[in-house]
Design a protein around this nucleic acid. Structure first.
Lengths: 185, 185
DNA sequence: ACCTGAACACCGTTCAAGT
DNA sequence: ACCTGAACACCGTTCAAGT
């Protein structure tokens, strides 16, 4: 770790980690170069040596999250042989975990030039995994694709709805019935 | 219409309409008092005579949208007697209409102090209407509530996913199969 | 009653100058 | 190679002063 006058020099990674914390705490909108600089004990100017601009910082942060939360996790799920069980594990995990703020940032990203591409990559990987479940259940490809869309839209919508306390009260206590419906032949 | 030195005096409504346009064009984040003032040919200071702050402006804009897009529209849907047909009409409308930018802003609002309450109100009204469809189809209340959650989460997720061009390509061409699944006994 | 204009704070971005 | 500090633009908010 390089230093100067007893001060630790900052790395690109330091800024990225700080940005990811900020996103988790308050969404992409709350990433402020100014605030991060103060937190890290550097000047705003310093930031621009490591990154082209604010967008590049957010992109780097989301890429890191993507690796840790999707690319590295999917193989674990795919290891579950029985497709019905795989669906159950997936829904349960999704349902029980508190809503991840970064997940929501991505979901709201749409065609945003910064977060949009990250959202598209993550969604493609996951929706394929869900479709495979339905294929393994014996459904024809078209039907499997439809249900993957339904299931993934449910996932996104579920977390979006859960964010609002008043709305969250309407959430079913158990996903059993929904799970049955999704897996129906 | 009051004037002074040949200039039209602005009303609260003028600011609200301008804000709604801005939200539709770029989400709530793109509502800038500064820009609106320039557009309307007034100073920023003038704005603060009509509104307490920026949040109050956005709230007023969303309330207007809410009236025009939910409160006034639901009775029309409820007029459809046959619940199966009512579901079909609802899904078709939702599916065919291009994604409304304000709809997305609301969906991403979560527990945001400004847009959150508007989101909660709209969601409650609509989810009740969807639940009534399933009740009318003869499902028990619990089951009807579950499916209303599923259907509404699908709605939210569908539009969220559709925003991203790469993701939107995976959208099923027809909702027929999903409609069948949702309406299944 | 409604508006202006100056002031202050916050933040993104650039850049010459420092070590 | 990495950082500072000043500069500029953009924007939210306040407020004394104007009509």
């Amino acid at each position: 770790m390089a230093t100067r006058d007893g001060k630790t020099l900052l790395t690109r990674d330091d800024w990225t980690r700080a940005a990811l914390d900020a996103i988790a705490a308050g969404g992409a909108g709350s990433v402020a170069v100014d605030r991060l600089a103060t937190t890290l004990g550097a000047s705003r100017g310093s930031f621009y040596w490591h990154f082209k601009d604010r967008a590049e910082l957010i992109d780097a942060a989301l890429e890191r999250w993507e690796r840790e939360n999707t690319t590295d996790l999917l193989p674990e799920l795919e290891a579950v042989e029985d497709p019905r069980e795989r669906l159950r594990v997936l829904l349960k995990t999704v349902y029980e975990q508190p809503t991840d703020a970064i997940e929501l940032t991505l979901a709201s990203a749409g065609d945003d030039p910064v977060a949009g591409p990250a959202f598209a990559r993550v969604t493609a990987l996951r929706m394929d995994a869900v479709k495979r479940i339905f294929l393994d259940l014996g459904l024809p490809p078209e039907e499997a694709a439809d249900r993957a869309w339904l299931a993934y839209a449910l996932y996104i919508g579920h977390h979006q709805l859960g964010r609002n306390p008043a709305v969250a009260e309407r959430r079913p206590e158990t996903l059993d019935r929904i799970m049955e419906l999704l897996a129906a032949r």
